[in-house]
């Protein structure tokens, strides 16, 4: 093969693979649909009073000690999610930070915990299926016995939720498993999540994804200033209501569509990006990535064909060499 052919062949191969990928992009699978009986939570930041009851209850349910600040252990001082914290209340302040949920000189709370994506990135990228989406409930749970600790899930999660315990030589990934992991199983027992149960204002509301989405949309349809009876506990059978004036909500439910949607949805009166929500489109990165992978590797067809061709070429090109040419 001369140089001219060499370039012709390389160019041909490159264009062919690019075309395959472009075609793959078009054919890529769509976002996953919500699990048929998806359970989730609705966190309404305007209802949150920052009492951290959810943080404390979460620690209790999961048997995790509070994160101290120096010697101070009277409350939980976790700065963010970590191997010691599955749920944390954070604050956004602007200017003087005086008025709750105000855009200027205001502050707003934000709950950080697993969003239980409808099309979870962490599940898509985990090489050993240590992270799985439950086929019925849609809960994203973790199996430490399968996990190899590669931490790809942490890179694949748009919300940086899975946390590896770096300080432990035998560390594992820690994330919210909707209080339904082995040994806890609150959802299976008909209970709600610990954080929703503890929440005094109904800021964290438990329920099915459908019912929660309906509740969220009901709130968005209200006029600011109107009084609304906010349910507490489980949206399908609230243990009580409390009345409150409706704030000026942002006009979208975070998690309805973002990157394929989430089972844990958020409402807020200030823009979501200020609460640390990532810049996401409607398409899940998992679906794009899997599209590319399945184009290249479905049934290993492409690799096997390539291997066949390469074997033939190599055999042809080495057969002429009598001695030592083959390595």
């Amino acid at each position: 093969m001369d140089r001219r052919n060499f370039f012709k062949t390389s160019l041909g191969a490159t264009v062919a693979s690019a075309a395959a990928l472009a075609a793959g992009g078009v054919q890529a699978r769509p976002n996953l649909d919500p699990a048929p009986e998806a359970v989730g939570m609705l966190y309404d930041a305007t209802l949150c009073v920052g009492c951290k009851a959810c943080v404390s209850k979460c620690k209790e349910v999961n048997g995790m000690p509070p994160v101290p600040m120096g010697q101070d252990t009277h409350a939980d001082f976790a700065l963010d999610l970590s191997a010691k914290t599955r749920n944390v209340i954070k604050i956004h302040t602007e200017g003087k930070g005086a008025v709750k949920d105000a855009a200027a000189d205001g502050f707003a709370f934000e709950k950080r915990s697993c969003m239980h994506c409808v099309d979870p990135g962490c599940v898509s990228v985990c090489p050993v299926s240590a992270l799985t989406r439950h086929p019925m409930t849609g809960i994203v749970s973790y199996n430490k016995d399968a996990c190899i600790g590669c931490r790809t899930c942490m890179t694949g999660c748009p919300y940086n939720v899975p946390q590896y315990d770096y300080d432990n030589p035998f560390g594992q990934i820690v994330k919210c498993e909707m209080c339904n992991q082995k040994g806890v199983e609150r959802i299976d027992k008909g209970l709600m999540t610990g954080c929703a149960e503890a929440c005094p204002t109904g800021a964290t509301l438990f329920g099915s994804r459908g019912a929660l989405l309906a509740e969220a949309k009901r709130r968005l349809a209200l006029k600011p200033g109107e009084t609304y009876a906010y349910p507490r506990g489980d949206v399908r059978k609230p243990d009580s209501f409390h009345e409150k004036a409706v704030p000026g909500y942002q006009k979208t439910v975070w998690g309805e569509k973002e990157a394929g949607g989430t089972n844990v949805m958020h409402l807020s009166a200030i823009p979501y990006d200020k609460l640390g929500m990532p810049p996401l489109g409607e398409r899940s990165y998992a679906s794009i990535s899997e599209g590319v992978q399945s184009t290249l590797y479905s049934y290993l067809a492409l690799p096997v064909v390539a291997l066949g061709g390469l074997t033939w070429l190599v055999k042809r090109n080495t057969s002429g060499e009598k001695e030592g040419g083959a390595e």
């Binding site: 920052g50 600040m69 001082f77 963010d80 954070k90 956004h92 609460l275 640390g276």
Partner: peptide, 18 residues
């Protein structure tokens, strides 16, 4: 209506990380 969120150090900011 909870009018205060003091002590301020009890709440990490959005950008505070472990």
């Amino acid at each position: 209506e909870v009018k205060t969120h003091t002590p301020p150090n009890a709440f990490p900011n959005i950008a505070d990380r472990q």
